[in-house]
Simulated scan of single mutants.
Amino acid sequence: MERAYQILVVDDHKDIRDLLQRFLQQHGLRVMTAADGNEMYKHLNAQRFDLIILDLMLPGKDGITLCRELRAENNIPIIMLTALGEEVDRIVGLEVGADDYLAKPFNPRELLARIKSVLRRHFAIPNVEEQTSGTPKNYLFNQWLLNTTTRELRNPQQALIPLTSTEFTMLLAFLCHPNVVLSREDLLKLVQGRGADVYDRSIDTLISRLRKKIETDPKQPKLIKTIWGGGYQFSCEVSHDAH
């Protein structure tokens, strides 16, 4: 990695915290640890972190609750850890905004690889921007505004709506192709940046997360429509400017 990213490990098992801290520091990362949500917030209030490794089963507020709270405030990358390996747990973690998910027990090298992948996806220019020559700064749709420089999304009331890096890239893909039916394969090609870990089944989860943020009624979406047998369509007029 080109710079020493700051990582926060949140896990109630001291042995796991100490092991991950030693291992990740040996590979050029700066690491701090927390045993629960209270310690996590103390660290977050004191300094900036590039990524959080968040255990699902924690005393007090669990990882799902903490992840949901974090997502309501910022787009810091989150990798969730859990002793549970059921698919439903993975889906719930992704739905509340986790960028990746790893079941215990795991090889620390696999976690390191996932950290690198998530950080690349978060800090690198995504594929959809590379494919769009002269990407405009501002995209406007249905009185919403997406700023591609700051990666900020504002609703019609000008309130800031936090987006993960993958949610931002997915929304930008739609805004670059309004009123066009995009298959899951199309979306995968547009969303996958260098080292991005996006797979076919996660497209639906990303769509669900985006709908909850921009649709008036996510269960009856009017912006991101499902085209049965075809994929998805962003059914809205989109305008943009360069300033």
Rank of each mutant, 00 (worst) to 15 (best):
2 E>Y: 06
5 Y>M: 04
9 V>G: 02
11 D>T: 11
12 D>Q: 08
12 D>Y: 14
13 H>I: 12
15 D>K: 08
20 L>C: 10
20 L>N: 05
22 R>W: 08
22 R>P: 01
25 Q>G: 14
28 G>C: 09
33 T>V: 15
34 A>W: 15
35 A>P: 02
37 G>I: 12
38 N>C: 03
39 E>H: 11
43 H>S: 07
46 A>L: 05
48 R>M: 08
50 D>A: 04
50 D>L: 02
52 I>C: 00
57 M>I: 14
58 L>F: 06
58 L>H: 02
60 G>T: 08
60 G>C: 05
66 L>G: 06
66 L>S: 09
69 E>A: 08
72 A>R: 10
73 E>I: 04
77 P>C: 06
79 I>F: 11
80 M>V: 15
82 T>R: 05
83 A>K: 04
84 L>T: 15
87 E>F: 07
90 R>A: 15
91 I>T: 14
95 E>V: 08
98 A>L: 10
106 F>Y: 12
107 N>H: 14
107 N>G: 07
108 P>N: 09
111 L>N: 08
125 I>W: 04
125 I>N: 11
126 P>T: 07
128 V>N: 02
130 E>T: 14
135 T>D: 10
140 L>C: 06
140 L>N: 13
142 N>H: 15
146 L>D: 14
148 T>K: 05
150 T>L: 06
150 T>C: 03
150 T>G: 05
153 L>P: 02
158 Q>G: 00
160 L>C: 07
160 L>F: 09
160 L>T: 12
165 S>W: 06
166 T>M: 07
169 T>L: 01
170 M>N: 01
172 L>G: 00
176 C>Y: 04
177 H>Y: 12
187 L>E: 05
189 K>F: 09
190 L>S: 02
190 L>K: 10
195 G>S: 03
199 Y>I: 15
199 Y>M: 04
200 D>L: 13
200 D>Q: 09
201 R>H: 13
206 L>I: 10
206 L>M: 09
206 L>H: 11
208 S>T: 15
209 R>L: 09
215 E>T: 13
216 T>F: 09
218 P>E: 04
224 I>Q: 07
225 K>W: 08
227 I>G: 03
231 G>L: 11
231 G>T: 08
232 Y>Q: 11
232 Y>C: 10
240 H>M: 00
241 D>E: 00
242 A>F: 14
